[in-house]
């Protein structure tokens, strides 16, 4: 039981980390075109916008597909 719960928590963490890996992969080439000494404010903003807009897109698509099912 203890082990089952531990594994479940670890799997959720792994899933979350996988999602973050995927977003970083998608947004990195859109926002980072050269390697600087620090992450610039504009690069940081671009990454945050990229995640937010991707999720906006995602939620819209899911809602539309659900609406279409009915």
């Amino acid at each position: 039981q203890e082990i089952a719960k531990f594994i479940e928590t670890e799997q959720q963490k792994a899933k979350l980390q996988q999602a973050i890996h995927n977003f970083t992969s998608i947004c990195w080439p859109k926002c980072i075109t050269k390697v600087n000494d620090k992450l610039g404010k504009d690069e940081e903003q671009c990454l945050a916008n990229c995640v937010e807009r991707y999720l906006d897109c995602n939620f819209q698509i899911i809602k539309s597909l659900e609406a279409a099912k009915k």
Binding site: I26, C27, K30, Q45, C46, N49, C50, E52, R53, Y54, D56, C57, N58, Q60, I61, I62, L65
Partner: peptide, 27 residues
Amino acid sequence: ELINKINDNCFDLCIPKPGSTFDKSDK
């Protein structure tokens, strides 16, 4: 799978440069 594929392809096409809002025209 369908949601992921639509998302990846339409995100690239509709939002090539992600801005600070998701406005009517993006939608």
